[in-house]
Nucleic acid binder design. Structure first.
Lengths: 340, 340
DNA sequence: GAGAGATTTTGTAACGTTTTAAAACGCCAT
DNA sequence: ATGGCGTTTTAAAACGTTACAAAATCTCTC
């Protein structure tokens, strides 16, 4: 007999409420409520009695009632934007997030980006209509409207990625600078004289980190740097592919912040008869093991998106748990080098 | 001035409630409630007055209160299981789902599969604790515990994939039979004499559909069929890869229900010096444009996961909207042939 | 001009929880 | 016994909504 089986005395299973427990134990509803909340002003003995009854009847508090009474939703909202570049991003992020939230009593709801790319609107909607206790979003910008809005309202959040602004806030970010630096060093070790970076669009903070990392390493090793403008990891693959095909001169080293831009570039170069490992080298940031299948010799550096999700989950739970405005802590997770 | 700006008379923005509207319009709270609900027993004029006031004050009903009162959560739960095989599955499915739910007032929450692979537990949790009005799940089996449980409880749901059981229920399914048939025909057209199918694990309903489609076409065209046991699209890529490398004899035609199994198999065959297009043919079911990048010559058939999500969304909204038990309708969406 | 009938509005009671302030209880010193 | 004090319990109100039954208002018809 399962523990949360219906104990209905013959009829349809009726959900036990505080009133049920009160009747069962002989205490008042208020007492039962506080006993379950582990209020220290409740006698130890009654706490046990109530806990036992709750366990026996399979009591579980009604979220709607709690939410109505307390104003807390016990919900975290994830703002979803389509990621063309990072394979399995959504899946891994959600896995990490829900993993961190298991047992916390919090639920995860997902809000789509409204078409037209307005990234602030869904967040305003959530905040204004009290649809969650905290929000998570990604693709953070140097100067991010969402961060500004949420800080101003004192609304808990955690972002994937940092801002450049002076105001501290909770975030989780991959060390893109370290990745880019390591990748460029690797290219130098392989004998590359020039390095080309397919960058994310400028406004995203991590674009700056990637560029900085590449430039620093290139300076150390005397390499030339090219970063194509009018082209980003968000460009349609066909466009990237075409760009690569018409590249002149062809750099002998590439840093790719994602699988797709690599595949697109490699396709373009291949049409010109250029092959990876022979005519150029590449280091690719991956978040899946997929690329190893298409070419086992590739130099890959791993970004653990599931871990990012886990950290974001912990971060936001901390933020909603503590008193308003406390602990704007950021955490940075490290690249995992897969080559050699 | 934005339409839902706070109209607070100087102080902190206080959310307007029905009581606010009642005071504002001079009607009773009950009247306001029913006016907003478009109750036909309310005079047209008052409906307009109330609607105007609601609009002006930026009134939006409190979900918690509605949920407490009505018992309806206005939430749909998506049961998430990790899909190694289909690239971008989660992302696309959620995009489709949320797209279909926009404007419906429903929210989407996501529940992870509890580790250990118990697929029923999270659903029971949602149903027993009234955490949603309907659930969505995928990877449906011939005889599916979840379907049985939900039908028995009369709980609204829509599954991605069918069951084989006699009881009808709402589902959305890809026409895997048609895909497999078309794929095999294509292989025959290319001159293949034998066809090998990497199948999903037996219990999943779509495994049967795929096998049937392949076998039917093979019979029509006089091809031999092999379906490796102890190997499925869920097998780790390394295992698939190793299997391919040791394959003997090597079939001259392959049907792949997903990108990953193709990449793994091709990697194994490549290590033996066998090349696609020369030594064997392949038709692959894809859900992204990624494979075109690695090999533009590949024969691909597209499964639109976003569309699946959209259909699932419509389906579940229909199911929760109508009276209990009505309209167990299933919908099948078609393959999109990309070759030629 | 009064009553019947239809239309429209409203007061009240829930839904299940937490919180505030007050009541009950036990115990000890007077 | 009485009062006082610390501990433990409780009644009642509130959160914002919907639903039921009853009240109020309007519209006819005789």
């Amino acid at each position: 007999m399962s523990v949360d089986e219906s104990h209905g005395r013959g009829g349809a299973a009726v959900r036990p409420t505080l009133r049920t427990l009160a009747a069962e134990t002989g205490f008042a509803v208020a007492t039962v409520s506080r006993a379950l909340a582990n209020d220290p002003k409740i006698a130890e003995s009654t706490r046990e009695t109530v806990a036992a009854a709750a366990q026996r009847l399979g009591y579980v508090p009604d979220r709607a009632a709690q939410r109505l009474r307390t104003g807390r939703t016990k919900v975290i909202s994830l703002m979803l934007d389509p990621h063309h570049e990072i394979l399995g991003f959504t899946n891994h992020l959600i896995e990490g997030l829900t993993g961190a939230m298991v047992g916390s009593g919090y639920h995860l709801t997902v809000f789509p980006q409204t078409v037209g790319g307005d990234t602030l609107a869904p967040i305003q909607h959530v905040v204004r209509n009290n649809l969650a206790d905290g929000v998570i979003f990604s693709r953070t910008r140097d100067d991010d409207m969402r961060v500004r809005f949420l800080l101003e309202r004192g609304f808990p959040f955690a972002s994937h990625g940092r801002t450049r602004g002076p105001a501290p806030h909770p975030f989780v970010d991959f060390d893109n600078d370290a990745f880019a630096h390591a990748a460029t060093m690797r290219l130098a070790d392989k004998g590359a004289k020039s390095v080309c970076l397919i960058s994310p669009p400028e406004p995203y903070t991590f674009a700056g980190h990637l560029r900085a990392g590449v430039r620093r390493a290139a300076a150390e090793r005397g390499m030339t740097v090219t970063i194509p403008e009018h082209l980003s990891i968000d460009s349609p693959p066909e466009q990237v592919s075409a760009w690569a095909e018409s590249l002149d001169p062809v750099p002998d080293g590439f840093v790719f912040p994602g699988e797709v831009s690599y595949l697109a570039t490699a396709a373009g170069l291949r049409r010109r008869g250029l092959e990876h490992g022979r005519d150029y080298h590449a280091v690719i940031k991956v978040s899946s093991s997929l690329l190893s299948l298409v070419d086992p010799g590739l130099d890959q550096i791993f970004e653990d998106i599931r871990e990012a999700g886990r950290l974001l989950g912990e971060s936001i739970l901390g933020a909603v748990g503590t008193e308003k405005g406390a602990m704007p802590e950021g955490v940075i997770y490290a690249p995992v080098v897969l080559y050699r």
